[in-house]
Computed example of a mutant assay.
Amino acid sequence: MKKPKFSASNIIFLIVIALLIIPQTRQPIQVFLQKGLAMISPSEISADKRETLKTYENWNLVDSKGNPFDFKQAEGKVVFINFWATWCPPCIAEMPSINELYADYKDDVIFLLVSNEKAETIKGFRSKNNYNFEFYQSINNAPTQLQSNSIPQTYLIDKKGSIVMNKSGAANWNSDSVRKLLDDLVASE
């Protein structure tokens, strides 16, 4: 009988599998892997394929301080919407790039980072990671065109209500292409 051969690649593979099975190491490894995937910049939807929001009405949110936000307030403005969760590795992986984008565009773009988790969980996550942007909880359903079954799900909406970007999964939101697009959208009439 032949002895099984244990090559370095087999040993590394077994270690990675073991680390993914252990709950304490699973999430950090998944976040690390997702950060590599999140280096990809999302792409803009071509003008002829963009969908326009039918309404800004009937979507209400609340921020971490309990302040209400009526989505109607976003009409006529550039809006960045991200649906996420604190337990979601791709969501965690893209948060630093969103935070950097927010730092430069918070006065010109409405950032709505929406989670359905408890406020205490969201506040703890925000504090632990020193994020500057506000997080929201949805009180009722988002407009139909902004509903998705996956997270992270991100939409970039122009002043006319057209969905310019619709990205499922982690992305690098602080890329040059996203910044140029935001500059163009903010400057447009």
Rank of each mutant, 00 (worst) to 15 (best):
I139D: 09
P89F: 00
Q30M: 15
S177D: 14
A18K: 02
N99A: 08
E44Q: 14
N149P: 01
D70A: 12
K3M: 14
A8W: 11
K54D: 14
P4G: 09
D176A: 15
S97K: 02
K49C: 02
S162A: 15
E57S: 15
D108P: 00
P23R: 05
S115D: 07
Q145R: 10
V31W: 01
G36R: 13
I157W: 02
N129Y: 07
K54V: 14
I98C: 05
Y102T: 04
S97L: 06
K167I: 08
K3F: 14
F111L: 07
S41H: 04
F83Y: 13
F71N: 01
A74P: 02
F125C: 02
G76R: 08
I40R: 14
I151A: 06
W87I: 08
K180P: 00
A38H: 05
I122P: 00
W87F: 14
T52W: 01
K128S: 11
I81R: 00
E120V: 14
A187Y: 03
T25E: 10
A18L: 15
R126A: 12
K128G: 00
P90I: 04
F135N: 13
I11G: 09
Q73C: 00
S97H: 03
K160D: 13
I11M: 12
N58Q: 13
D158H: 03
E189R: 10
V79E: 04
L156Q: 04
Q147D: 04
E94W: 03
L61D: 04
K5H: 12
N116M: 10
W59E: 01
S46E: 14
I40Q: 15
D70V: 07
I92N: 00
A171M: 08
P4F: 09
D108Q: 13
N60R: 12
A85P: 05
T144Q: 13
W59G: 01
